[in-house]
Design a protein around this nucleic acid. Structure first.
Lengths: 108, 108
DNA sequence: TAGTGGTACTCGGTGATACGGAGTACTGAG
DNA sequence: CTCAGTACTCCGTATCACCGAGTACCACTA
């Protein structure tokens, strides 16, 4: 697949939010999940950038825990603001994708 | 609707390509069509930026024609490269939106 | 014990994009 | 003759995904 980076802008963060919303998890695993979900070219650095932004914007709760395999992990879970943001994200996605699909079907 | 600007990145250009692909048209009208299609906050300056970029990238053919109502208009139509780019855009959109929808439905 | 590979995070810089505002210019109506 | 509507250009800004280098911890192995 061609380069998707421009198209991912604004949506990748929402995807990360969704993944975190399912269960408490951390950056390395989120990256792997995104790759398996078809976002094959998303790299770790990108995910960590998003995670740091979510933290800075107060959308997540962060807990550092030691790991048996490597350095300590930063576990993320959504707080109330994060859940609200996730809801807004899906509303926006719903709105946008319906408009684009209509355009695609020849809507004018 | 909330601010869509980040989500539009990478997709708005494709929408403009699609509109131009239907019939030869110009910036002012394209903006109006986008607004009617639900991209309500898209402003003229943005569309003209995209148009200039399409021209610079050799995806469109441009014809300047005088107008009875105001300054001359720059009419745009797709050339072969533009049609190819449009095809790639829809392929990318198809790919991305199917992944996101799967994620939304609880896919893992 | 030195090296390698996998796990895990941080930080600074880059490029692409949509947006905003100011400016130019032409036309017709009041 | 001013004003609103049409129509385009240019410059600057913010945001985002990406990239590379760096740090650090652990387990295995030669």
């Amino acid at each position: 697949m061609d380069d998707l980076t421009e198209m991912l802008k604004g949506t990748l963060e929402g995807c990360v939010l969704e993944i975190i919303g399912r269960e408490e998890t951390y950056g390395y695993v989120i990256t792997r999940q995104l790759n398996e979900l078809g976002f094959a070219d998303v790299i770790e650095g990108t995910v960590y950038t998003i995670l740091l932004r979510l933290e800075r914007n107060g959308l997540v709760q962060v807990t550092k825990r030691p790991s048996g395999m490597g350095p300590p992990r930063k576990f993320y879970s959504l707080n109330a603001a994060g859940r609200a943001e996730l809801g807004k994200f899906w509303a926006k996605w719903e709105y946008l994708s319906s408009r684009i699909d209509k355009l695609k079907e020849g809507g004018r």
